[in-house]
């Protein structure tokens, strides 16, 4: 059995990289295209296609926003772009360092393409990349390339405008929230805001940064003048109304964890006792709720 698998692996390895099938995308606003990821964990069956990724077409160039969880997804996104325009992809923007958003970056490797990210992304991704690559192997499509880290060409530390030719994207680098390197993209032409994982819709939020930081960032984020939001996970929606379910939930988590800590309730007991009634409201609750409460508890202990 094992030698058969090895033989199969040997046969697969030397194959040239196939041209990927174009990913299905929806035009959520004029010139703004979204490929919506599945509300699932990354598995071999879904090929790691779980995050929202997309692109914006300007008068002279294209900007990609997140490249997906694998090289095959990145190439599929590029193929979807090529079905619609011959303009060059001048920017690949990463909204944060999580693997489902960045492991397709190398599909856009080109001298004319700049990788754009929060100034803290390179260090954050470097510290985790081996772990991400090892985990991604479980959902990688047979024959797909192993992802690689590309250097960040444009590091955003505060805010930055990118001109696609008569179309300006306003990038904002946020203080630590979902991660320590969250970056949002506002398409000023249509008022479409790409939040990356600063917003989860329907899917349970995960926390890899700071709960208190996220609550503060959401206050400022709500003031961004946008009409429509494209979250990191889940369907697009009206802005800022689409932010409210997550904002209310994370506030509740912070309040309940603080109350339990004041009563001397330990971490193990706090997890099932915090916001347990939301079980039916969030997809993937069983996976991400314990993670969120554990991280929130450890952070709030130092208040």
């Amino acid at each position: 059995m094992r030698s058969g698998l090895l033989l199969l692996a040997c046969l697969l390895l030397p194959l040239p990289v196939r041209a990927a099938d174009p990913l299905p995308v929806t035009e959520v606003a004029p010139g703004v295209f979204l490929h919506q990821g599945r509300q699932e964990d990354a598995t071999a069956a879904n090929g790691g296609d779980i995050a929202n990724i997309g692109f914006i077409v300007g008068g002279a160039a294209v900007a990609v926003i997140d490249s997906g969880g694998s090289m095959v997804l990145g190439r599929g996104l590029l193929a979807a772009i090529r079905q619609r325009t011959d303009l060059p992809v001048r920017y690949v923007i990463n909204t944060h360092m999580h693997p489902d958003h960045v492991l397709g970056n190398a599909a856009f490797r080109d001298p004319g393409t700049s990788l754009v990210a929060h100034g803290r992304l390179p260090a954050a991704l470097a510290a985790r990349f081996d772990t991400y690559r090892a985990r991604q192997a479980d959902s990688r499509t047979a024959g797909d390339e192993v992802p690689a880290v590309l250097p960040v060409d444009i590091a955003v530390t505060d805010s930055r405008d990118l001109d696609l030719g008569g179309r300006v994207l306003r990038l904002t680098a946020w203080p630590t929230a979902h991660t320590n390197n969250d970056l949002t993209v506002l398409d000023t032409a249509t008022g479409t805001l790409w939040t990356g994982d600063l917003l989860f819709r329907d899917r349970h939020p995960s926390l890899d940064g700071s709960l208190l930081g996220w609550l503060r960032v959401m206050d400022d984020l709500a003031a961004v003048p946008a009409r429509t939001v494209v979250p990191g996970h889940g369907p697009p929606g009206p802005w800022p109304a689409a932010l409210e379910p997550q904002r209310t939930y994370l506030r509740t988590v912070a309040e309940e964890v603080r109350t339990l800590q004041r009563r001397g309730v330990g971490l193990a007991e706090a997890v099932p006792r915090t916001a347990a009634e939301t079980k039916t409201r969030w997809l993937l609750f069983e996976t991400y709720h314990p993670q969120l409460i554990t991280a929130a508890y450890a952070e709030l202990e130092w208040e």
């Binding site: 510290a127 081996d130 772990t131 630590t176 320590n180 940064g209 700071s210 930081g213 130092w302």
Partner: peptide
């Protein structure tokens, strides 16, 4: 082997503190 420090700057600011 999990990467440590969700927020390295905050961690540095309170390093050595006890509660």
């Amino acid at each position: 082997s999990a990467p440590a420090l969700k927020d390295p700057e905050a961690a540095r600011a309170r390093a050595g503190r006890m509660k």
